[in-house]
Design a protein around this nucleic acid. Sequence first.
RNA 1: GGCCCCUUGGUCAAUCGGUUAAGACAUCGCCCUUUCACGGCGGAGUGAGCAGUUCAACUCUGCUAGGGGUCACCA
Length: 543
Amino acid sequence: MDYKKLADLLFPEVDKDFNYYINKYKKRNLPAGAEVTRIAPSPTGFLHVGTIYGALADYFTAKNSNGVFYMRLEDTDSKREVANAGEIAYDMLCYYDVCPMEGYRGNKAQIGDYGDYIQSKRMNIYKAFAKHLVSIGRAFPCFCSKSETKQDIIDRRNEQLENSDDIEEKDVCRNLTYEQIESNIKAGKPFAIRLLSLGNPDKTFEFTDLIKGKRQIRENNKDIVLLKSNGIPPYSLAHLVDDTLMGTTIVIRGEEWYPSLAAHLELFDAFGLPRLKYAHTPVICKNDENGGKRKLSKRKDPEADARYFITKGYPKTSLIEYLINLLNSDFELWRANNPDLPYTEFKFSLSKIGSNNPMFDFNKLNDISKTVISKMTAKEVYNGVLTWAKEFSPKFAKFLEENRNYCEKVFNIDRETPKPRKDIYCWSMVEEYYSYMFGLVTSTELEKQDEANYKEFILAYGKNFKLPKTKEEWFNGVKQVASTLGYATDNKAYKENPTAFKGNVAKACEFIRLALTGRKNSPDLYEIMTILGNDEINKRFKI
RNA sequence: GGCCCCUUGGUCAAUCGGUUAAGACAUCGCCCUUUCACGGCGGAGUGAGCAGUUCAACUCUGCUAGGGGUCACCA
């Protein structure tokens, strides 16, 4: 068959050869060893945390090699596209400090010499590439037009999955003659373009993934679609075209792409283009309700949305450091040795990424976040809480603004010391956590068997209460009252014979704490009392 | 179901054929603080199972089991 003639028949409107585009974009002028990475989300909704996770790997890989990290918008699936999702993706990446150095920038102008960075604006290029492949006999038109409603696709897949061990890979249209094709075209039948695969899955080849290491991979034999019948390329072709033209050196992407790697490589070979380096990252999972494991689902898991952590009020650094820790587990050791360095100084490495899928662990995130917040000043905490509250709890924000000094004092309890308290891990917990400082105590954790002693003690201690000037005096006062009521002031004596006392000073303090905060657990009592002041203290004692 | 990937304590994990199998989170206990914490110290808890190779296996090989991914004209 005359493939050139076929190519012209199929793409009469395409005038530029793919070589035109290959030559149009200059090779990047970068120092030796520089890597070019990219993040390429599709605008189908919110930005997945996994995208931040991947972007972090992209960012570090580019930065550590003095390379480039750019962003491209993969908006070739109009059916799933959600308005503004591209903008959200870009904003979210920037929010988490993995702002791409080049490429797509939301509604703002794109930056860089390798654009367009929006796939829907690159249709001419994709077509030129597809045409080229037809012209050398490595791609063919497929007229098996298929319904594309979601249900049809699902039905078709289920049918295929049930009926055979392996799905038929060779497309029937690959054997069409020129005359048959021509008459189809004349009849106005829509067609897709497919790769004419030459692979044999019984044969394998060696491939080195930057994360997984050396692997044997089976050759591809799928005649994958290169151009849908609407003329738009699916990922496979767009990936090759864009990553080649934009000068990507390492494709860092989720492991869900690994099964289609062989097809992508065959496509590069078919074009005679050099293969790129790949790094397939693990997928973040979580525990299923039934005890199983599954990947974080956009639909089921609110924490799959990168914005979830903003709504909860996690400082962005907390999530970033948690994700880095998931990527390179030696990060925490580095962090322990370098508590004050920015995380960007960390020596990140693709090869240190583990190869099994980690569970998202809120315990760990919270711990990291507690440390992050414990290093902040009271002012920074105040600002963090306020910024969060303005968006998510306007009433609380109003209170914060009207009582700025007071709130900063509250946030400064056990803070700005060599060993700061670690209790807050996100801003949304602050209002509840310090509720007793922001209003009256409405409930208490007092235990039933303590009720009598509690009343007795508070009545005695709270009578005409006046807060002493120093913590020492204050504590002596507590001891004094406790002692006269039959509490142990000597811990040793108490431990030797606990039944001889109503309790020890700790118990007395618990009662004061309960009366003032309703909690058994709160920051330093004396500081709380200092901030509350005598009037408020007496009011609460009376209640 | 086919194909691919993975499997060290509840979670994240180090080790790259010879270790008392690190460390972190969570959990429990003790110490410090005569309060809550922070901090310090310690306990419990791990190589999925079975074979094989080897003087020696968590580490290599095979099988089994479990988990995950994928099998779209979605990315």
